[in-house]
Amino acid sequence: MEFPEDLKFTEEHEWVLVEHGMATVGITDFAQDALGDVVFVELPEVGTVLETGKSFGVVESVKAVSDVYAPVSGEVIEINEELPDTPELVNTSPYEDGWMLKIKLADNAELDDLMDADAYQAFVEEEG
């Protein structure tokens, strides 16, 4: 199980990569493993304004559905166009090719509420 050091994490198992005021978001290695083979990903349209903690899409396996929650608020400026046709990227490369969307950060202070890799790893071990 991977917990990349450069990422921030939520208790709902999303990860965030912050670069130049922009947050890239996906679901964690732990989340994809728990879900099993991902068969479908539903993402919002570009331009949608997300609110922290609110569901922005769903990830489905054959027999389960999981909401995905916005780790930070802001406007969606790009979505991963590959995912509708190749949802398996979420399994094979959760932290890179399986990214879901890019958000223009509305409030940098929200990042302080997220966990770092060590804290998230501890959280997962406690939960599991």
Partner: peptide, 9 residues
């Protein structure tokens, strides 16, 4: 595509 259905969702 059972994830649309009541027994899952």
């Amino acid at each position: 595509l059972s994830t649309r259905e009541q027994h899952i969702r």
